[in-house]
Design a protein around this nucleic acid. Structure first.
Length: 756
RNA sequence: GGGUUUGUAGCUCAGCCGGUUAGAGCGCUGCAUUCACAUUGCAGAGGUCCCCUGUUCGAGUCAGGGCAAACCCACCA
């Protein structure tokens, strides 16, 4: 054996060794131990890998996948037929954003391509880079069955997603509605509430005068968005506000376009804010939209999907809202309608979570799923703890969200995703608004009825970019065109609509053998940030489709931060690349640093280089313990027999008995801690026993022992037991050492897990 | 505005059902080391367990109040 442990060579070599023996396959690893006395012979254990983005390198958070791998390795060693099923995600929106940045570098944008071409381009980009994520997961030591790797856009996944949509449609859970959505004119798509955030900002607050019809009176409102005054439909005051009581029911005149606006009462209005009078613009504000619905007010929009002012905003038509705002303020000033401007007004602006770009609330046709019934079922299994969380906190959180749930907008106006399987008959829907590029690359836009006067339907379909069907449009749910004169919906599913079905798609619900054998799965690990996005939806989809829970235990881990507990971010320059740590200290050390050096169940876990270095030293320590043991055995001359409690009872010295007792305690403790998913405590037990009891104390006594045969066989036994306990945490080093010190035994990975 | 979590050694954190003298890793100090490992060993320093009040024979742990930090949800034009 070398003087020090070399993780660089060993890790690659050992992973290849496992692969060559097919040990990641539940069937093969199970077979390899067929003759052994397996304890849980007839039981299976399954854990699904949360799919990382197929085309991005792994970040530190992915190193927490070690938790899943630890569970899989323990169960495998305990004799369970164990499936750790890996996969990758197309990450629709994320990927398209990345690809659009790439296009921008080439001086192009998504508008230069028709839908199908753009989709192909993005897909190829993903395929070119998709090895990256899986290669890196292998470097981390994941004992996943790569033969079963599922990609979110695999045919069978799309097939399941379509089946689900069809079933939901038949069950009346799918509807289209004009709905106030979070629309990003920058990204050209809708976001769900979960995907938006608020950012602090300072904007001018304009106080604008509205004259009352046939009267000298005026009413002043405060607004940060004067450019939407064109879309005002009413003015609201609080019913208890005595200042305005006598104005209610009267009519104000829109200072920009002269339209009449009724003054209405609504308790939503805060008399304390601004002037206590609120302009109602249902087309551009969520609260106004609700008030508008309540009072049956019309909806007017003056901003289009490209984010420009429409021709209804006469003076500023074609401008973007920000410059339009300034221009409108000038116009109001000229008209004497601008009372004052509070330049330092602080408020929060709605933005997308990804780029923090402003969100434009717009009433748009969208596809929705009714959530109430689905949420009810999910709540039941969570309350009964059929799905059990590792901390009570997460149970509480997920129930809170399920209690406040609202319908889920599942359509996204992006190209890279699974197309919604819906078709529109062009003859029945002459109002379809279509955008397409003709063969010369010229973009056309308009109602299908008009476009067909100058273009062939085939050309329109070929160059199709975007389609917006009016709310009442007739449609057919189908995977294939129902006839010649049909155009497919261009919206795609929200990423979470497909990943929410991950347990079903990966196991090939409903008829595949895997589904029958491994569903419901046993263990699901995820971070709290996608508790609602993903965990909750998987539970709902699974119950809806199979009446079964998708997984029995959910382990929610925390965010990985830098050594000071600060969030890693590129701008702070404190991002740790897991691959660099693996290169420098080894995957084993990284896994230990994360899972044993901190508490992964906390809301956040700090990872530091010092910690990882410490565990690299530990790997070297156990390597040298083995090396020393081998040297002592060599010195001793004859073959040291395997430890057997029956044969040795009488020959044992006090220190042997003490050690064996300690070993027993350690095994018990480790099993207890793991039972409770206390990985750090379990790992620490082994760490401490090996380094301080076995190495610092016992080995020192062995050096002077006269009955070396007894001592060495006790040492051999204790050490090997520890290697097994440590294997799930440090799979590479332990397996490598196992190869060095054993001869005829099965690989450590499928050896029998120690118990008392 | 509603909610959650956290506060213990220089740093990151354990301390689980209330029970001797409060622990670990890293860091720090001193010494040792041609003997498996300097990626080592031995020894050591370092704590108002955030503050106050209470319950208790006994509180880092339980209850009430405060202070501080982080996060989640909602969001006033």
């Amino acid at each position: 054996m070398d003087k020090t442990y070399n993780h660089k060579n060993s890790e690659n070599e050992i992973y290849a060794y496992w692969e060559s023996l097919d040990l990641f396959s539940p069937e093969k690893s199970y077979k390899a131990r067929e003759k052994a006395e397996l304890e849980n012979k007839n039981d299976t254990f399954s854990v699904l890998m949360p799919p990382p983005n197929a085309n991005a390198p792994l970040h530190c958070g992915h190193a927490t996948y070690a938790i899943q791998d630890i569970m899989a390795r323990i169960k495998r060693m305990q004799g369970f037929k164990t499936l750790y099923l890996p996969g990758t995600d197309h990450a629709g929106f994320e990927t398209q954003v990345v690809y659009e940045r790439k296009l921008k570098e080439q001086g192009k944008s998504r508008f230069d391509f028709d839908r199908d071409t753009l989709y192909e381009k993005v897909l190829n980009f993903v395929k070119e880079n998709s090895q990256m994520a899986t290669d890196q997961l292998k470097k981390l030591g994941m004992s996943a069955d790569w033969e079963r790797l599922t990609f979110m856009l695999d045919d069978h996944v799309i097939d399941t997603v379509y089946n689900t949509f069809e079933k939901m449609h038949e069950d009346g859970l799918v509807y289209r509605d004009t709905y106030m959505v979070n629309y990003s004119t920058f990204h050209g798509t809708t976001f769900s509430n979960l995907e938006t955030t608020h950012k602090e900002s300072v904007s001018p607050l304009y106080y604008v005068k509205y004259a009352l019809k046939d009267s000298e009176e005026i009413i002043t409102v405060a607004t940060v968005r004067p450019e939407t005054i064109y879309a005002d439909v009413a003015i609201a005051v609080n019913p208890d506000d005595s200042r305005y009581g006598k104005m209610v029911g009267k009519v104000a005149i829109n200072p920009l376009n002269g339209k009449e606006l009724e003054i209405i009462e609504d308790s939503y209005v805060d008399p304390e804010f601004g002037t206590g009078a609120l302009k109602i613009t249902p087309g551009h504000d969520f609260n106004d939209y609700e008030i508008g619905q309540k009072h049956n007010l019309p909806i007017i929009t003056v901003i289009d999907l490209e984010g420009k002012m429409t021709k209804d905003a006469v003076d500023v038509s074609g401008m973007y809202p920000k410059p339009a705002r300034k221009k409108v303020a000038e116009i109001l000033e000229d008209k004497g309608a601008l009372v004052k401007v509070d330049e330092k007004y602080k408020h929060s602006l709605l933005a997308d979570y990804k780029d923090k770009r402003e969100i434009e609330p717009l009433p748009l046709p969208n596809w929705f799923i009714k959530m109430e019934g689905l949420a009810e079922e999910a709540k039941k299994v969570i309350k009964k703890e059929e799905v059990k969380f590792n901390r009570p906190l997460w149970k509480k959180e997920i129930l809170r969200w399920l209690n406040e749930i609202y319908d889920w907008p599942i359509s996204r106006q992006i190209v890279f995703g699974i197309k919604i399987p819906v078709w529109y008959d062009i003859e029945k829907n002459p109002d379809l608004h279509v955008t397409f590029i003709d063969q010369k690359g010229v973009s056309h836009d308009g109602k299908i009825e008009n476009l067909l006067k100058n273009h062939d339907l085939a050309d329109i379909k070929e160059g199709l970019q975007k389609l917006i069907a009016p709310i009442g449009a007739e449609y057919e749910v189908s995977r294939n065109p129902p006839g010649e004169k049909y155009i497919q919906e261009t919206d795609t599913f929200d990423t979470w609509f497909s990943s929410g079905q991950w347990p079903l798609t990966t196991l090939k619900y409903p008829n595949n053998k895997d589904f029958k054998e491994f569903f419901p799965t046993d263990f699901m690990d995820s971070m709290w940030d996608i508790l609602f996005f993903w965990i909750a939806r998987m539970i709902m989809f699974s119950l809806y489709l199979t009446d079964q829970i998708p997984f029995k235990n959910v382990y929610i881990h925390g965010a990985i931060t830098d050594e000071k507990g600060k969030k890693m971010s590129k701008s702070k320059g404190n991002v740790i690349n897991p691959m660099e740590f693996i290169e420098e200290y080894g995957a084993d050390a990284l896994r230990m640093g994360l899972v044993v050096g901190g508490n992964t169940a906390a809301k956040q876990t700090a990872l530091s280089e010092d910690k990882v270095r410490g565990y690299r030293n530990f790997a070297n320590k156990i390597w040298n313990m083995a090396r020393f043991m081998e040297l002592m055995k060599e010195d001793f001359g004859e073959k040291v027999p395997l430890y057997n409690p029956e044969n040795y009872k009488l020959a044992l010295q006090k220190e042997d008995k003490d050690l064996l007792k300690e070993l027993e305690k350690t095994v018990t403790k480790v099993n207890e801690e793991l039972e409770k998913y206390r990985f750090a405590d379990a790992g620490n037990e082994v760490y401490h026993f090996m380094w301080h009891t076995l190495a610092d104390e016992y080995i020192e006594t062995v050096k002077d022992r006269k009955d070396k045969k007894v001592a060495l066989s006790v040492l051999d036994h204790a050490y090997k037991t520890c290697l097994k306990l440590l294997h799930p945490f440090m799979p590479f080093a332990t397996e490598k050492i196992w190869q060095e010190i054993t001869e005829d035994e099965v690989p450590l990975m499928i050896s029998q897990w120690p118990k008392v």
